[in-house]
Design a protein around this nucleic acid. Sequence first.
DNA 1: AGCTTACATGTAATCGATTACAGTGACAAT
DNA 2: ATTGTCACTGTAATCGATTACATGTAAGCT
Lengths: 351, 351
Amino acid sequence: MADHSQSVDRITVSASTTPKIKDVARVAGVSTATVSRALSKPDSVAANTRQVVLDAARVTGYRINQAARNLRQQKSGAVVVLVPNLGNPFFSQILAGIESTLAKRGLSVLMVDTKQSELPSEYLHHSRADGIIALDGSLPGTLLAEIQSGIGTPPIVFACEWDPDDMFPSVRVNNRHGAALAIEHLVELGHRNIGYVGGPPANVLTGARLEGVQRALQANNCAVCEQWLFQGDFSLQSGAHVAAQWLAMDNRPTALFCANDEMALGVISHLHRSGVNVPRDLSIVGFDDIDVARFFLPPLTTIRQPRSKLGTESADLLMEKLEHGLISDSRSETVLPVEMVVRQSTARIAN
Amino acid sequence: MADHSQSVDRITVSASTTPKIKDVARVAGVSTATVSRALSKPDSVAANTRQVVLDAARVTGYRINQAARNLRQQKSGAVVVLVPNLGNPFFSQILAGIESTLAKRGLSVLMVDTKQSELPSEYLHHSRADGIIALDGSLPGTLLAEIQSGIGTPPIVFACEWDPDDMFPSVRVNNRHGAALAIEHLVELGHRNIGYVGGPPANVLTGARLEGVQRALQANNCAVCEQWLFQGDFSLQSGAHVAAQWLAMDNRPTALFCANDEMALGVISHLHRSGVNVPRDLSIVGFDDIDVARFFLPPLTTIRQPRSKLGTESADLLMEKLEHGLISDSRSETVLPVEMVVRQSTARIAN
DNA sequence: AGCTTACATGTAATCGATTACAGTGACAAT
DNA sequence: ATTGTCACTGTAATCGATTACATGTAAGCT
């Protein structure tokens, strides 16, 4: 009887369907429970059994069915990353940091573009994601409220940006300090008429950096001229647009601090075509230190943000939450240092 | 009896656990089958029943358990995207294109960095991914063999790059043609000593573009000088490194075609610091037309690649495969057009 | 020997949806 | 009145793993 069923099994195993744990069990001559244990908790089975199972898994070409595991274990093995704009290269290093950290722990990365896709609210279920990393500080309030209610919703961690009410754990840099460094650098070079090019007004980074600018200007007894507060959208184009505005002004600032590098490059580029030389005629400081900054002409003076680290740290923070259920207070708002990188887009003020 | 169980139900529903389809069924007073149908095939239930179910789903705050659905339906609702280097901004537009297209169809995007993560072979199972989009032409042969065997493995589509044997469907640009355009442009400007800066030698793009270069040079009776074939790695740094080599040469080419924009910018940047002016002393053509190309100083002459379209088309191609099981021959190798963008990093040869 | 303990393994329940199949009632055709 | 059809809905099997619990067995101890 046993022999007969075995010969039948041989045939079953070689069928064209993908092998299940049952097939492995049959080939190994053990129960499915043992196979499961041998594969996921190797120490809990005898050494020789383990070997037999591993061999059986190999010959059958067994691969686990994630959906079944996920259903049983009530988790998804995935983390959703909410990116404001996937097309924006600024995020790529952060994403790389997140991916590498999560991959090490066997978690996969679900990428969602919050500007393109309508409602990522389907992702707010433990069967979809074990956790969320948001690079977008402008998520719909309803979404955040739902996450906070915390029933069945995965925990969230912000990276780079943060939520308006600042209620969730986050990893970011000291934006005010970075902005202040930029202003102080310009003041040291003799500038007193300093403008600021922000991103979208609603953006938290725009605001935080503006605060830093205003404080530093006041601390140095510089005027804070409303007219010199430009509005961009973090794009190269918007930088060029600001440059055009600057050209059209009567009383121009002698230096500009841009809330990101791309806008800074846009400004320089546009001005150059109009015969205005940076840094001779205008000093420019950026923010981020993207790759191209040090290769630009002139190389860009900027505030360096550790992008890769923002990614790895936020992923680590989320892992802590996932594994320990809680995040230690000391880490729940991680602030990474920025660094002033002086290059050649800033110069001592003329005459 | 029925009354009693109902009052118990009220309590059950308000318990802290996340609501299941069973809870919705109870509240709506129908079976779970009807709830399932009302939610996913609305036409198959009576209008009023549907309404009752929808209301019940709303009040209970029901959200579907994807793992359960995936297990039953034998699919994952996700597509894996294999990126050679997530940190490389070149891919961001392509990724955005992929994401937006897939999101429209309700598919989610699993991002994997093939350089960082060891074995994405766990992803080769229908329970993990319904399909694969590879931006990396250098995947391990074993992996490709497995995908081709096609038992239980999701279908794959290449974008931008392609596999060495070119056996899988792909979306790409006409790289040889693009390279030829670059060379012809330089020849028209009077250049006859033209160099080529490639990426990693094993890369398919490096090879394809080199072919285009060689053919075009021959067609124009230009020497193909071994010494003028530089090797980079697609990074800004490697471009700078090539510039240093160029500076050290005895017989320099008067123009360089770089296999991507970043290397081109690296070359220009490094040369500028050494007092060599582009385009006066050397003409440079790039490839890709990344965002910063037109803002660089000088603005970069380059071959534009429709990056976003590469993403959307490859996603569409995969969807066709997923929905129809096959890909029409006409699409299985989609070639998108490139476009010559003449800016100011190229000039008529001196004297 | 008899008893306890620890370890290895098997049996069967379980996760939460989908869906094949069966059943019901209304209505039209005969 | 009988039968067939159609539109809905319910019952229960199913997807493929994990794991609580039961069982068996050998070693250790008195």
